[in-house]
Design a protein around this nucleic acid. Structure first.
Lengths: 188, 188
DNA sequence: GGGTACTGCCTACCCGGTAGGCATGACCTA
DNA sequence: TAGGTCATGCCTACCGGGTAGGCAGTACCC
């Protein structure tokens, strides 16, 4: 529901029209948004009584105003944390999990290819950060969004490394009774 | 497309029926999967020539076999890295990005609530890891999946802390020419 | 005998996301 | 000046992901 709530949050600041919402959303979150989705979402919001639409202005725009119901939903959204449990599937984790159990799959190659791509993304993000910082735009929001992606990607790379070493350990069968030192890792 | 490809990967190992696929998928990936989605996905796979269905057996199960086309799609999936760019929206990042720009929003409270929830999730994960390790199941895949969630959540907490300090810095307007030490952060 | 629970299937419905079509106006260029 | 392109602005159609729920058979237990 990020789109629904995101649009509502923007409408909570001031009335806007669809195309304008798309632009604002992308500029603030850095997340590309298809215009079509804006209009369908707006009609759902109108259906649910969260916004009211004014007829098209003489220049053709349809402005949307938020209602009390909509305002309540926004504050609800802002004050409720995003629970880890109801996040979309992690495609990478699923892929590796299924690959581990399959024969005819070269785990090392998969991990290697993934790490290469993740490191490339990491480079892109740092380049963007440098540019954003240098241009003096000083767009705090944009910098924070970039940081989020950097942090996530770093975690991904670390996890990939972790997987690789774990898989190597598993290849040579476990010692009869695992020597001490394993416990520390488990309770990290 | 994680579901589609995940089911295909399971079918590449051996023929299975819908309900069984749900069970295997959840057991291996730890990701809950609605049965209805399995059946709709299977029919799409059949439509696309990736699998063929046999009529219901005497006990009522419909077994699905993978085809050459399906096999090609699986290996394609396994060998192509998951690109950072085409991942689902990051609801948390979007929320915070929009909150920064809004008045009447208590950023500190939002971040605080989110961190509390993330730390709770982190605790749950470590508990699960301990249990998985202690029971001697030694289910490597499940441990790796748990590690993925741990790494991601740790990154999230770090990012939240990062956001908080950045926002505090931004409140008191930046010094005329930022003192050294900032550059190191940007190019980290 | 009836409640509960599991296996096994299928349909309906909604949201997210993409593609694409349509119209207007600005601006550039042959 | 006519035609190309691009941006603004709207809308619809279509597909995959995801959830809810219904239906039937079996098993098990009180």
């Amino acid at each position: 529901m990020s789109v629904r709530h995101g649009l509502l949050a923007l409408l909570a600041e001031q009335p806007r029209y669809g195309y304008e919402l798309r632009g604002e959303f992308e500029a603030r979150t850095g997340s590309p948004l298809n215009v079509g989705q804006v209009y369908t979402t707006l009609s759902r919001l109108e259906r649910d009584g969260c916004v009211t639409a004014s007829g098209a202005s003489e220049t053709g725009q349809r402005y949307y105003q938020i209602t009390a119901v909509g305002r309540a939903e926004v504050t609800q959204w802002f004050t409720t944390p995003v629970r880890r449990e109801d996040r979309p599937r992690d495609e990478l984790a699923i892929k590796l999990a299924l690959a581990v159990g399959s024969e005819d799959v070269d785990m090392r190659a998969i991990i290697q290819a993934q790490r290469t791509d993740s490191l490339r993304a990491l480079q892109d993000y740092t380049r963007l950060k440098v540019r954003a910082g240098a241009q003096g735009t000083d767009d705090l929001t944009w910098l924070l969004v970039l940081d989020a992606m950097v942090f996530q990607t770093e975690a991904e790379v670390r996890w990939l490394d972790h997987c690789e070493t774990r898989l190597v350990q598993a290849r040579r069968p476990a010692p009869l009774h695992q020597p001490a030192g394993e416990g520390a890792e488990v309770t990290r």
